[in-house]
Design a protein around this nucleic acid. Structure first.
Length: 221
DNA sequence: CCAGACGTTGTT
DNA sequence: GTCTGG
DNA sequence: CCAGACGTTGTT
DNA sequence: GTCTGG
């Protein structure tokens, strides 16, 4: 699964890395503990690529109960195409979720230990995502939401957790964003990334509290 | 036909 | 235990 | 993902 | 909205 991550890059780095336009008024804070239901940057493609701030936790268009978003923070790559909640977004609203690390909690006899994973290169990467636009029946407001696709763990991840985010190879990012591409094009992009490109290290359990967000969270223990 | 679900994770 | 909020 | 709430009535 | 279950 992927229930927390980091995206501490500056807005300009992010825009440059993904070749995406950056709305001038957008203020991006460095995030060391990005959590569900928060507004976080995604890269999507309509006329061109652009960065947008969407809320983590997908609201299907037909949903009435806002708390559904809590449950749809991830979507399983294996069953994506069958699920009513994801099908529409999968066809027309694929996005990149930029990150420079993600957290998983490893269960050990002595307790749960938070681990942070990054690319060995230290570079930014893209997790495969889906987004939706939802009209709040109470207020009439439009809310844009997203979910992160998960896949099976690679050899580095399997001792830590039984799921991991689907990290796209940089050369596959354009294919994922190409809204005219069919399933045969993008289906194979959602496999676990090679273990060799990832690195994992334990971090402070201060990261457990989603209200804590500080650079020291990513310090190795 | 209408009513009710629609999801993931983890745990059992 | 289960649900909501972040 | 984890943390924190989880309820009513009446009174301030 | 669309599908499944009754």
């Amino acid at each position: 699964m992927c229930g927390r991550y980091t995206i501490a890059a500056h807005a300009e780095q992010l825009a440059e890395r993904f070749g995406a336009a950056l709305p001038s008024e957008m203020l991006l804070q460095p995030r060391y503990n990005a959590a569900p239901l928060q507004m976080l940057p995604v890269v999507l493609q309509d006329d061109g690529r652009r960065v947008a701030l969407f809320r983590w936790g997908l609201m299907p268009r037909w949903a009435k109960d806002p708390s559904i978003a809590n449950k749809l923070i991830n979507a399983r790559a294996e069953t994506l195409e069958e699920k009513p909640s994801f099908r529409d977004a999968l066809r027309r609203r694929r996005c990149l979720v930029p990150a420079d690390g993600f957290y998983e909690w490893q269960k050990l006899p002595e307790g749960k230990i938070p681990m942070r994973m990054t690319l060995r290169s230290g570079e930014l990467f893209a997790m495969a995502g889906l987004w939706e636009s939802w009209k709040d029946p109470a207020t009439g407001e439009l809310l844009h939401t997203f979910t992160i696709i998960t896949t099976s763990p690679n050899e580095l991840m399997s001792p830590i957790h039984n799921r991991m985010p689907a990290i796209l190879a940089p050369e596959h990012e354009a294919l994922w964003l190409d809204q005219s591409a069919g399933p045969e094009v993008w289906r194979d992009l959602l496999r676990p990334c090679p273990a060799e490109i990832l690195r994992a290290y334990p971090v402070s359990s201060q990261v457990n509290n989603p209200r804590v967000d500080h650079p020291s969270l990513i310090d190795a223990l």
